[in-house]
Amino acid sequence: MKSLGNIRRSFAPWADPASKPFISFRNVTKKFGDFTAVDDLSLDIYHREFFALLGASGCGKSTLLRMLAGFEQPTSGEIVLDGADMTGMPPYRRPVNMMFQSYALFPHMTVEKNIAFGLKQDGMPKDEIADRVGQLLKLVKLEKFATRRPNQLSGGQRQRVALARSLAKRPKVLLLDEPLGALDKKLREETQFELMDLQQNLGLTFVVVTHDQEEAMTMADRIAVMSHGKVVQVATPAEIYEAPNCRFVADFIGDVNIFDGKVKAGGNGVVEIAVEGGPTLRTATSDTPASGSSVGFAIRPEKIRVTRAAPANASVNAARGELWDIAYLGDMTVFHVKLAGGNVIKASSLNAQRAVEDPFTYDQEVWVSFDEDAGVLLKD
């Protein structure tokens, strides 16, 4: 499939048939008694990739990360890292390190001693430890805080100490389990970009577990959306958002309107869908379903126009309704429009101008409309 949306960097080894995965989960299953946390899962991650495991609580993403770290062993299947089978290998022998959500810093140690702890355990010479710690303090911009203890640092600073300690032994893969969950919103957003820059500068493979969609969309080269121990879709953030492969992904990622209907007609890359209590939909598709089959149609709020006047072609992808709710959010305004058949459509509009002349009001009659290529057909 053609790449969608903006691309942060020219990096797509998964699209090159000659590229070999750096990490492979091969038919991995993990059971805890009668409960299956990970269900016959196969997944490839590439060298220098920033990869995100995204899903709701209990979907199996943290269990997958812990199996890669060696804290859990698969019930069946195998995990291969850089050509080596990790089956049965203890955590301390694996070329990975994990940064936990709680940071797990030693409260009685200074910043530099926290970072140096693992290196001392490995018996590295003191002068080499000092050099390595100095490099890492500079990398995470904490040179002035080297002699402080964790309780003398802010949440963002403690997060950086934990990151530096995770990188001290120069792992091939850094695993991050909800790494920004303890930070406030503004600091979390700043740290996301810092992690991206750091990952690219170091040239390491990062695998992050998160339930925060925005976090995954911001940082990751690719995202694996998980549900009930399985991977539902693996793709770039833009492809996940613009071209979800099923109803679950469309509904899980961001805001979306989903209509259920039956195929009226199709051909030449376009299909028409009849929606009970809603507009007739016409959408572009590369795979036309059979006439009369039940399908879903997903469209994002920002793809929908809200106007006072009817569009030029009001017979398809357009409907008249009543403004039910209006939410002014500063950068955008969100509208809930109730159609004559009872369906409610969510639309959003960017507030590009500082002042709004003749604003929309509650209970006002409006039209909603969108283009043929604005939504995506869902077959399940």
Rank of each mutant, 00 (worst) to 15 (best):
W14C: 05
R188A: 13
L198H: 04
G5P: 05
V207D: 11
A130H: 14
V232F: 04
N257A: 04
G342Q: 14
V337K: 01
T147H: 14
P301M: 03
M226S: 02
Y241S: 06
G123D: 13
A52T: 07
L153S: 08
K303S: 15
I115Q: 07
S166I: 12
Q159T: 06
V173T: 12
V270N: 09
R8L: 06
C246H: 07
V133I: 13
R148Q: 07
D39L: 11
Q159M: 06
Y241K: 07
E276S: 14
K20G: 09
G269I: 08
V316A: 11
V231S: 13
A327W: 04
R300T: 05
G342V: 07
Y362I: 15
G55E: 00
V234A: 01
V334H: 13
A318R: 02
V232E: 15
A15L: 14
E128T: 12
G292D: 08
E49N: 05
S315A: 13
L281P: 06
D16T: 11
F51H: 10
M226W: 03
L65E: 09
P171L: 13
E72L: 08
S57L: 11
G70K: 02
S19D: 04
H108R: 02
T75E: 12
Q200A: 13
D82C: 08
I79F: 03
M124W: 11
S19R: 07
L281H: 04
E72F: 00
P359V: 14
R308A: 06
Y46T: 08
Y92G: 06
D325I: 15
I258H: 08
F22T: 06
F297Y: 14
S348N: 14
W14Y: 01
R9T: 10
A182W: 02
G155N: 01
G278D: 08
M219L: 15
G155F: 03
V270R: 05
G267R: 01
L64Y: 06
N317M: 00
S286M: 14
M196Y: 07
A312P: 01
R282E: 14
R354Q: 14
V368C: 10
I115T: 12
K186Y: 10
H108K: 09
V337G: 07
A116K: 05
A162V: 12
K185G: 01
I115F: 12
P13D: 02
